[in-house]
Simulated assay, not measured.
Amino acid sequence: MSNNIHMFIRMIHEEVKDDEDDAAITTFLVEQYAQHMDHDFFSHHGGSVLNHRVINRNRAEGHERLYRDYFADSLTYPSQLFRRRFRMHRSLFLRIQAAIETHDQYFVQRFDVVGVPGLSSLQKMIAALRMLAYGSPADAVDKYVRIGESTTIESLKKFTKTVVEIFGEQYLRWPNTSDIARLMSVAEQRGFSAEDRGPEVSYTINRHKYTMRYYLVDGIYPSWRTFVKTIPSPQGNKKKFFATQQEYARKDVEQAFGVLQSRFAIVRGPGRMWDVETLKYIMTSCIILHNMIVEDERDTTHEDVDFNYDAVATTPTINLSCNRTSKVMEFIQVHH
């Protein structure tokens, strides 16, 4: 036993020296406790959860580093890098931060009884955005942001749900009159009619004249007359040209989803959560954030916007073989 334990036993004997039975019992209990402390199975944990070790991450240092790098008067990283890493301009980021702090007290920084600051809304929001933007694991931001894995997951859930609750009604609504007028104006600039109906269509395929409108689709759609698919393995310049143009001009929704995937890599990769509700909030919040970014950058010229986002290594693609193996064939022959 350590010297501290021996000193404690002597103190007990001095206090209860008039009662030998009490002294013996107390000595026995202290020695038993000391033996347990030496055993491997006894958990030395600093928190209220068994087998959980408290790591002093110095959260204040993490907050100060983030502030110096991206939000101070003398920035470490310029605004272009901020947008590449967080998918939006700093002004929109601060607008969302102020809104979620007002809506949910979880994002308001708190202090413990001795005045040590907890995680700031800046740290929680950046941890959530890094997971959404990069599709990275929850513990990937620990070293820089100074936030634990479980707290990052909690922040992601809270952030996505809060974004849907605050901004869902505005950024998931049907187009209003001003939206339609703006879209029609853009369409007119690109050669389409400004009227509230599609242009007249007339075309000939295989010497048959058609006036029915059609959609450019890929091979997963059914063989309907309104669906025009590409030509698989086109032969000849004419078919190659048609296939190229068809694939180039395919549905806008597919292009929009491709932009969404490039902006928020978590949409492109495997699901990070298990429950359907959380996955729904993640997907919906990414769409809302995408619409907010589009609105924020609507008046910005294309040349001033960088669409090359920072990304981590993509998930390796596994090529699955559809050929029957010899073992499978043997199994079929035996049990057929």
Rank of each mutant, 00 (worst) to 15 (best):
M1E: 10
N4H: 14
I9W: 03
D18P: 03
I25T: 12
E31H: 05
E31V: 04
Q35E: 01
M37I: 11
F42G: 03
G47L: 04
G47E: 03
G47A: 06
S48N: 11
H52V: 09
V54I: 15
R57L: 07
G62F: 08
G62R: 09
L66C: 05
Y67A: 03
T76H: 04
Q80N: 02
F82R: 00
R87Q: 00
H89F: 05
R90F: 00
S91I: 02
R95P: 00
A98M: 08
I100D: 03
Y106V: 14
V113P: 03
V116Q: 07
K124Y: 08
I126E: 03
I126D: 07
L129H: 09
G135A: 07
S136E: 07
P137M: 11
D139E: 12
D142T: 14
T151H: 02
E154D: 09
E154F: 09
L156W: 11
F159K: 10
Y171H: 15
W174H: 09
D179S: 14
I180W: 09
R197I: 06
G198I: 12
V201H: 11
V201L: 06
I205V: 15
K209Y: 08
R225P: 07
T226A: 03
F227M: 12
I231F: 03
F242E: 14
F242D: 15
T244H: 04
A249L: 15
R250K: 13
K251E: 09
K251N: 12
V253H: 06
E254H: 13
Q255R: 14
F264D: 01
G269Q: 12
G271M: 14
W274Y: 15
V276E: 15
Y281C: 11
E297S: 03
R298L: 06
D299H: 09
H302D: 10
E303V: 02
D304G: 02
A313H: 11
I318C: 02
M329N: 10
I332M: 06
